[in-house]
């Protein structure tokens, strides 16, 4: 039954997605360690951006502070691992939960704010977190030097050290994220977020608890960003507040806006934002200029983003034929 099928071969995009999946699976065979590292970075941004896509892409909540939740996750992992010798994977759920808790606390009083006001407040969140970390207000975050000596993760006795190991770890997580968030999007919750994005008064008026679902999107997105933070801490083995600055938030935000709402779009857009500047490295100082220019052209040429989500598919028993005729 196509209602439950993940792959729909009547949609051309499916071929693109499958090809992309295969390419990602075999890519490390053709890349050196440097480029594999770049791809790990793209994967991390992709996970982060997919989690922001739930908040910004699906629900239309203008949240520009996502790096704050990434930071919380990374720090929880770093602290539990270096101080309490927790294994990296064991810290992951806690990193997610901590980020989700912070999100719940900060979002509760501001979630009802209008788009532009909310944007400003969320920018504040990331700065508050960064400043708190820099000044070591909790006494366990190592100030501006951060935390170093984070252990390598182990997967059933297998030590994840090399770039290629991280490549499969990060992209494996990314694949799981794609699947779970795709299913979320297909559900009543995904729809509720879209109703809110389209017209929150109408959504509330038809029985959707707007505040509840906005919070849910926010907390879920933060949970995921926290888990991505775990992977980041494990990959870097050293983390510092400077890695979670406002610019990071802006990049993730831009990735999602450029993507236009679909998950495939987020992948493509993560590559464009993280991979392309590396490819353009020869141009050295001019590359950010090229990049900025390309973004501007994109936004004028395709203001709806690269790939807006396709309509959800529904299997309508007897109607599907009649519907086709109606269209013809």
């Amino acid at each position: 039954m196509s209602q439950s099928a993940f792959l729909d071969f009547s949609d051309k995009r499916t071929y693109g997605a499958v090809a992309m999946g295969l390419l990602i699976a075999v890519l490390p065979l053709f890349l050196n360690a440097y480029w594999i590292d770049v791809c790990v970075s793209i994967g991390l941004y992709a996970i982060l951006s997919l989690s922001l896509n739930v908040i910004l892409g699906h629900a239309g909540i203008f949240h520009m502070g996502h790096a704050a939740f990434y930071a919380v996750g990374a720090y929880v992992t770093a602290i539990l691992n270096t101080m309490y010798q927790w294994s990296i994977f064991a810290t992951m759920p806690l990193a997610g939960l901590a980020a989700a808790l912070v999100a719940l606390l900060v979002a509760r009083p501001i979630i009802h704010l209008r788009g532009d006001y909310l944007l400003i407040v969320t920018v504040g969140i990331v700065e508050i977190v960064r400043i708190a970390l820099t000044n070591d207000v909790f006494g366990i975050t190592g100030g501006s030097n951060g935390i170093f000596g984070i252990a390598r993760p182990r997967f059933f006795g297998f030590r994840i050290v090399k770039s290629v190991h991280f490549y499969y770890l990060v992209w494996g997580m990314c694949a799981a994220t794609l699947l779970l968030f795709h299913w979320l999007w297909r559900s009543r919750i995904g729809r509720a977020l879209n109703y809110i994005k389209e017209d929150d008064v109408a959504a509330e008026g038809c029985g959707v608890d707007v505040t509840h679902y906005k919070l849910m999107a926010f907390v879920l997105g933060a949970f995921w960003a926290g888990m991505a933070g775990t992977l980041y801490a494990a990959k870097m083995t050293t983390i510092a507040p400077a890695s979670f600055n406002f610019m990071e938030s802006v990049i993730i935000f831009a990735v999602v806006i450029l993507a236009g709402g679909s998950q495939l779009g987020v992948l493509v857009s993560s590559f464009l934002f993280i991979g392309l500047p590396e490819l353009l490295r020869e141009f050295s100082s001019a590359r950010m200029l090229c990049f900025g220019l390309a973004m501007m052209i994109m936004m004028v040429w395709r203001p709806q983003g690269l790939m807006p989500p396709r309509p959800r598919r529904y299997r309508i028993p007897d109607r599907s034929k009649a519907g086709e005729e109606g269209k013809a």
């Binding site: 559900s187 009543r188 729809r191 879209n194 109408a202 029985g207 959707v208 879920l220 529904y314």
Partner: peptide, 26 residues
């Protein structure tokens, strides 16, 4: 919801009678 399908507009009204939470959905 002018950019969503006719069916999804009606599903909006049905939303409050459905129970699936975010875990069951994901």
């Amino acid at each position: 919801f002018s950019r969503l399908s006719v069916l999804e507009n009606v599903l909006a009204g049905r939303h409050c009678r459905l129970k699936s939470g975010f875990l069951a959905s994901m």
